[in-house]
Computed example of a mutant assay.
Amino acid sequence: MELKCLLMWLLFGSVKGNKPDKCPTLPRTKFADVTAETYPLGTKLYYECDSGYTRRSGHYLGIRCQRIQQVASWVYKELECIDEKILLSTAPTMELDFTQKPERKTQSPAPQKRENLSEFDQKHFCGLPRTIPHASLSLNRQYYVGQVLHFKCQSGYDKRSPTSGTRMCTKVSGKIIWTPLDMRCTNDSDEWPPQSTEPGSTHPPSSSSVILPVTAIFFVLLIIPAVFV
């Protein structure tokens, strides 16, 4: 009985240990683009078909980072985004073809060794997902411990240095946090000092507007005697 309880404890402990820890909500960074180069095991991402395209019936838009043959790899299912116009114009023919063709089995792709990652990273992190025609990855809203995100100021908001930085989701003293981001994206438009104006005046004082008429009058007075000599 004790041995059975011990085995159950070890089993549930190992299952719990393999479950990735979720990160808290990512703080919003204004005027910055966010990208990632690697994703920890357990990460789920989803594709979105581009405008004018739709997912083929029965295909799945999601992918997941899993360990396959000791290498972290994305697991893909059948996914194809097809032109909505073509789909509507050939819908009866396409449905007939589906009934005639045997169902294809979904197979996980063979893991590819990424030479630019260390042996540890290859076991625990997936690289960039592959490109799907007429589709793009949707914004990821859920991250897991170990995720590193790269931030870069958008064009026009990169007036201050540094204009790029990283944040990492990590566990510190049992608490999961995002590391601080030492950057700020701004166009400095709100930092110019306001021009001072006199009380009751709608325009700032300008000495040049007074000097110019006086100079012109003085010049005319010098020219008139010379004309009549």
Rank of each mutant, 00 (worst) to 15 (best):
Q66L: 13
I86E: 14
M183N: 01
I223M: 10
W178E: 11
G62E: 10
K101G: 01
I211P: 00
I176Y: 05
C65A: 02
Q154N: 10
E48S: 08
W192S: 11
D121S: 13
Y144V: 03
M94H: 05
S51T: 05
L96M: 07
P102C: 11
A36S: 12
K152V: 11
T35F: 01
R114K: 11
E2R: 12
D83P: 05
M8S: 05
T179S: 13
V214E: 02
F98D: 13
E198Q: 04
K152L: 04
R141T: 15
T25F: 02
V75N: 06
K22A: 12
Y47G: 04
Q107S: 07
W178T: 11
C81S: 06
P205L: 03
S14L: 12
M168C: 10
F151K: 00
D50G: 03
K105N: 15
Y157Q: 02
V15Q: 09
D190C: 03
K123Y: 13
V210L: 15
Y60N: 08
K4N: 06
K16Y: 13
G146L: 00
L96W: 07
T131N: 10
S164M: 03
L221F: 15
T43N: 00
P24G: 09
E191Q: 15
C169M: 06
I211D: 03
R167W: 06
P225F: 08
K30G: 05
E103R: 15
P133I: 00
T106Y: 13
S189Q: 02
M1K: 12
D33Y: 06
T202L: 14
G13Q: 01
L96F: 09
R28M: 06
H203E: 01
F125S: 07
L117T: 05
Q107I: 15
P205V: 11
T166N: 11
G17T: 12
G146Q: 01
C23H: 04
A32S: 04
V172R: 09
L10E: 04
S155M: 13
V145H: 00
E103C: 13
S118C: 08
R184W: 09
I177R: 14
V227E: 09
P102A: 12
D97V: 14
S201Y: 08
T163D: 10
G42H: 03
T43I: 01
V220N: 08
C185Q: 03
V75H: 11
H124A: 05
M168H: 04
E119Y: 04
C126Q: 00
A226G: 09
T106I: 15
H124Y: 14
R56P: 00
K77A: 01
R184L: 06
L26W: 07
F218M: 11
S196I: 12
D21M: 14
P225K: 01
L6N: 07
E78M: 09
G13E: 00
G200V: 00
R160C: 08
Q142E: 13
A36T: 02
D190Y: 08
K171P: 05
P92E: 06
W192A: 13
